[in-house]
Design a protein around this nucleic acid. Sequence first.
DNA 1: CCGTGACTTTGCGGAATCGCAAAGACGGCA
DNA 2: TGCCGTCTTTGCGATTCCGCAAAGTCACGG
Lengths: 222, 222
Amino acid sequence: MASDNLDAVLEEARSVLYPRDAYAFKQGDEAKFLFVLLRGHLRAEQNTSSGAKVVIRYVSAGDVFGAVEALALKRYPTTVAAVVNSVALAWPSRVWPRLAATYPKLAINILQMIGSLLQDARLRTVEMQTEEVERRLARTLLRLANQAGRKEGRGIEIDFPIRRQDVAELSGATLYTVSRLLSSWERKGLTAGGRQRIVLRDPHRLLGIAEGRRASATSGHR
Amino acid sequence: MASDNLDAVLEEARSVLYPRDAYAFKQGDEAKFLFVLLRGHLRAEQNTSSGAKVVIRYVSAGDVFGAVEALALKRYPTTVAAVVNSVALAWPSRVWPRLAATYPKLAINILQMIGSLLQDARLRTVEMQTEEVERRLARTLLRLANQAGRKEGRGIEIDFPIRRQDVAELSGATLYTVSRLLSSWERKGLTAGGRQRIVLRDPHRLLGIAEGRRASATSGHR
DNA sequence: CCGTGACTTTGCGGAATCGCAAAGACGGCA
DNA sequence: TGCCGTCTTTGCGATTCCGCAAAGTCACGG
């Protein structure tokens, strides 16, 4: 039943290839397309007027991106860049009214997706406001592992290159604090890593930290 | 042209009265209705499992609330309570598909509203992550004044009772820090206040703080 | 195989902010 | 009018977290 619809909807899209570090769009660009990521990983970030940068989210295969902007806003409020070679489908936003009218379920799906984005955004605000950095970082890593984790011998590796700086901008901390925490966790066997690389060695204990139990004997220093 | 539509849509709603401190709905309730606030002011807040509370936003007359939840989610992720006696219109969420199909512009409006909520939420995250408390507080007050300010002799008063604690939960600070900053601003003639009451005496200078210039000679202490 | 630039780590203060404790101040209600 | 609970203020540390500086470390291109 759905396959006819699906084919028809796919007809309207064109596919786009983003080499590593290429931009899908930039903050302030006119929002002419809505996308679905087929393969790869993208980073959505927002820059403040004062030059600070915040990572809004990482986009994984199967995710929709640019939708809210294309459907409801005029311009993209974020910049989206490929962190590995990626492939996406793009629909011109002008075809949306027709598609939505023809396939009501599509509209419902998009609405739900936006709803969950909103919920995520608010959850993040709540965490930023009520939890300390260590916990936020643990949560951030678990989330990344969950959406882009690859099983790797003794643990889960985040399946795309990510700098400490990126993690900091995603979790609401500084580069230095993230580096210190990861070092400390590495010494305890919770994580492992390297240049643009993070492996969760003991997700269970990380979850413990994320949920409140302080990393025993962390002491922040030493 | 629109008035017929409007009448027809209004037909489907029922009005509800919320006395001060009454709940429109609570976190976890099944999302059966979507609302428009006609009169009054509501506070939407979210509680964490650990007991902390965060104010998501204040709802003013004309605002839609509960929409995302009713249209896309199953349950309300926030609690909404009246801070003054309020009146709202409520639509059962099940009439939505029919309304949306009949009045496409309605769907577009709702989508745009949700889009701007998402943008707000992300902007807040960015601010929480990149700006210091003083600036965030100034922004928060200006926003409140903007959406619910009443001109008052020598300044703009926030037109509903709001505790320091609420401001803290809205701006991402603690009760103590908010109180200290407001005291300091009051000494400089930027604001005035009292029990559950805040008046912006000099919005222009507040804007200066919100945009970066540090309140001269603040010194944090004293 | 080496040089170079990007990324990471860590020491060392320093600043921002928290948060207890305790004292006021206010306002509604009996 | 007086009491009481709620809200606010402020002193005083205590913490958390930041952020410069400088020294690694790593990956890649030539």
